[in-house]
Simulated assay, not measured.
Amino acid sequence: MRGRITDDSATPRAGRRDYWGVVLDAPDAAMLARFYTELLGWQVHQEEPDFVSIAAPDGVAYLAVQTAAGYQRPTWPTTSGSPQMMMHLDFEVSDLGAAVAHAVELGATVADHQPQQRVRVLLDPAGHPFCLYLGG
Rank of each mutant, 00 (worst) to 15 (best):
M1E: 09
R2L: 10
G3A: 07
R4F: 12
R4V: 15
I5F: 12
T11M: 01
T11W: 03
P12V: 05
R13M: 05
A14M: 08
R16C: 11
R16S: 04
Y19R: 14
Y19M: 14
G21L: 02
V22W: 11
V23H: 10
V23P: 07
L24S: 13
D25L: 15
P27F: 12
A29H: 09
A30R: 15
M31E: 14
M31F: 11
R34T: 13
Y36A: 03
Y36W: 13
Y36R: 05
E38G: 02
E38A: 03
L39H: 08
L39P: 01
L40W: 03
G41V: 00
G41N: 03
W42V: 02
W42M: 04
Q43L: 08
Q43N: 07
Q43S: 09
P49V: 00
P49K: 08
D50T: 12
V52F: 04
A55E: 04
P57V: 07
G59N: 03
V60R: 02
V60I: 14
Y62T: 06
L63E: 06
L63H: 13
L63T: 09
V65M: 11
Q66M: 15
A68H: 12
A68R: 15
Y71V: 00
Q72R: 15
R73G: 03
R73C: 00
R73M: 06
P74D: 08
T75Y: 04
T75W: 07
T75S: 13
T75G: 02
W76A: 09
T78M: 09
T79V: 15
P83K: 05
M87V: 15
M87W: 15
M87D: 13
H88K: 12
D90Y: 15
F91Y: 14
F91R: 13
E92I: 12
E92V: 13
E92P: 14
S94A: 13
G97M: 05
A98S: 04
A98D: 05
A98C: 07
A98I: 04
A99D: 02
V100G: 03
A101W: 00
A101R: 11
H102E: 09
H102D: 02
V104E: 06
E105S: 10
E105Y: 11
L106A: 10
L106S: 07
G107K: 06
D112I: 08
H113W: 12
H113T: 06
H113I: 10
Q114V: 09
Q116M: 12
R118T: 10
V119C: 06
V119W: 10
G127I: 09
G127T: 01
P129R: 00
P129F: 00
C131L: 10
Y133F: 15
Y133I: 09
Y133V: 11
G136A: 12
G136K: 07
